[in-house]
Amino acid sequence: MMAVSKKEITQDMFQPAVIDKSLQEQVSGPSIGFWSDGFRRLRKNKAAMVSAFIILLIVIMALVGPHMSKYGIDDQDLKRSNLPPRISALANIHWLPFDGKNEQGVDVYKERGIKQDLWFGADKLGRDLWTRVWKGTQISLFIAVVAAAADLIIGVAYGGISAYFGGQVDNIMQRILEVLNGIPNLVIIILLIIVMQPGIPAIILAIAMTGWIGMARIIRGEVLKLKNLEFVLAARTLGASDSRIISKHMVPNTMSMIIIHTMFSVPGAIFFEAFLSFIGLGLQPPKASLGVLINEGYKMLSLHPYQALFPGVIISLLLICFNIFGDGLRDAFDPKLRQ
């Protein structure tokens, strides 16, 4: 019988499975959290990744670039005055501006007997523009990052306190905000800079003072929404203190909004610094920032256009990449766009 019924399936071949209650909760496959999901989405966005790479490249050049040339940002030499850019390796590519010839097609390097290549040329005082442009980028980035960080701290604190405590506190803080918001940014910035000496602290303070309002509003909206949710109520019922609820529940849940908004306030600050320097309220020469360099280059535009070209291209690249990367971050992390 055994031999014949090899294929036959009988009852006693089965045995009941052990029901393990502890395994009931187990989910197959690793769970994907909010952050890793967002990053996965971000990595798929090619434009955003390319932008991030370019931003990184510019940041590295801003740090390393000034040390690559042997000239400092204020080393003047009239022999090099208005020297066009030259990179010997690229000199034969005619559509690139690196052939060392001026607008009339004269090879200025040969004429003045200069052996050394100045990659971005020199300005009217013979200062090396390579050093100045990268140093300027460094200063512009520094101003933008510090200003954005200040925006973030003030905005999050103001918006968070206003929404979290609510009631009369919220009412008064919102009325103040409404009046402040009515004052044009430009007015505050100009008054501040006229009263303070134009310089890095004045610019940072001016940008930070006007930039935090947007952040405060977003955070207030988020916190208002969050504080009525069950998990916050549960935490409060369990006796969690205000500071614990804020740091453990409110901040992590608003983090994505904070990061997205900061990503857009950095290019805003870069633009404002350049704008202020361009109208003469920013850094004063010989200090360099992208705005100062664009302004100096603009004065020589008709004769030596390359002097405005390099800072102009770098600021445009930076702003375009920050905007694309910011868009990518928003698409990846903004819960409203999730389906």
């Binding site: 350049a274 704008f275 664009i294 535009l301 008709s302 600021i315 445009s316 702003l319 694309i324």
Partner: peptide, 22 residues
């Protein structure tokens, strides 16, 4: 649109002024 949003008007103005006028 991305270029227009990002590139500062004063950079664009200089570029156009140089190319089309100068």
């Amino acid at each position: 649109a991305v270029i227009g949003v990002s590139v500062p008007s004063f950079v664009l103005a200089q570029l156009m002024q140089y190319y089309f006028a100068v």
